[in-house]
Design a protein around this nucleic acid. Structure first.
Lengths: 210, 210
DNA sequence: GTCTATACTAGGATAGAC
DNA sequence: GTCTATCCTAGTATAGAC
């Protein structure tokens, strides 16, 4: 109770440092983000920063591992709970889009900054990412085999869908013209179209929203 | 004729500097690329580099403006030469995919490094990019109006298609399992599916290529 | 846990000789 | 046109006091 009674009423320094890291890595990139701006944004000195992380690279690794593990875990649980490939793809879209919308900064870092992880770290994170893509691949392959989908190239379809979902982090704004629910619905619909899902409902009404 | 008779038989220094810039900006990012590595890769000193460009930012601007102008010009000519929105979208996919495949480094720089352009330059390049996206938007809107397409959200469809095409630069290898012609064909097919093009041929045969 | 102060390296850019 | 040599700033990281 007395532990958080400091003046500013903010979270503890460790958390503030992580938050500042994600935000700055997302907006300026890992390579262009200095230790001093991170420390300034977190309201500490660089020396205090090094009390929480041994190197700047540790901050990046922390963001990557926790974020990707969370994404992969959610996706695996969603797929395991369903049987129909159509439902599974819908769930994958849902998880991915909501992940990107709930924390676009974290999504951008995970998507763009892997190359800066040093040594074994990069390999371990890329393995996680490969595992995530393999999950999508397995659902697409099964759906194609069961003739739920009609896809020419499974790998290109997977890449197209993932890029489509990743793009969200570049332009999504919570106060934009569409709600997140609307965006998710449209994304699911576009994914089904792209995969040529068979039992599609009659084409949805055409609108002109921005 | 005597002008190019120097020892190495390479292009002139100005061109070597531009080539090195694109390659390094693409692989390490603008912010993380020093002028000394650029000079080294071009086989000159940093002082010689500054004879050709006033600042490092000039090198980025050069890549951006020439590349984007070329892409926009090609796209505008292709669209102007056609009338059917279906043909126009096919042409846009074609131009964009071939642009990304012919020089992935340049495509990556154009896609990822705009934020590092200083002052008015960033605005002028973003205007070019907006013009390019507006071209896609106009084709999609007209196709939707003519009921050649059946798109729920024109803006999300445009973003999805552009992300899908941009993704090519991340994974395309000239010696990969598919030829560029095959990739273009699949991309056109996926685009038509996503846009729910009406007079689609019976679904293409399903294969399992990687 | 957090500070001040600092070591050391690499960054962009320039001067002036040739 | 291209070089050598150098200026100044900002980078990561650490030492040691409190």
């Amino acid at each position: 109770m007395a532990r958080e009674a400091s003046g500013l009423g903010r979270e503890n320094a460790g958390q503030r440092i992580l938050d500042a890291s994600v935000r700055l890595f997302a907006t300026r990139g890992y390579a262009a983000t200095g230790i001093r701006p991170i420390a300034d944004a977190a309201g500490v000195t660089t020396a205090a920063l090094y009390y929480y992380a041994q190197t700047k690279n540790d901050l990046l690794m922390n963001v990557m591992r926790t974020g990707l593990s969370e994404l992969l875990g959610s996706a695996q649980r969603a797929v395991a709970a369903l049987d129909d490939p159509v439902d599974q793809i819908r769930a994958l879209i849902d998880v991915h889009v909501r992940f990107g919308a709930s924390d676009p900064d974290r999504a951008k870092v995970i998507d763009n900054e892997v190359q800066w992880l040093e040594g074994e770290r990069r390999i371990s994170i890329m393995t996680l990412r490969d595992e995530y893509e393999a999950l999508w691949a397995s659902v697409i392959a099964r759906g194609n085999m069961l003739r739920s989908f009609q896809v020419q190239s499974e790998s290109l379809a997977r890449l197209a869908l993932l890029e489509m979902c990743n793009g969200l982090a570049h332009w999504y704004r919570p106060d934009g013209p569409m709600t997140l629910e609307e965006i998710v619905a449209v994304f699911e619909d576009m994914a089904f179209s792209l995969l040529r899902v068979r039992d599609t409902n009659p084409a949805s009404p055409v609108t002109n929203d921005p």
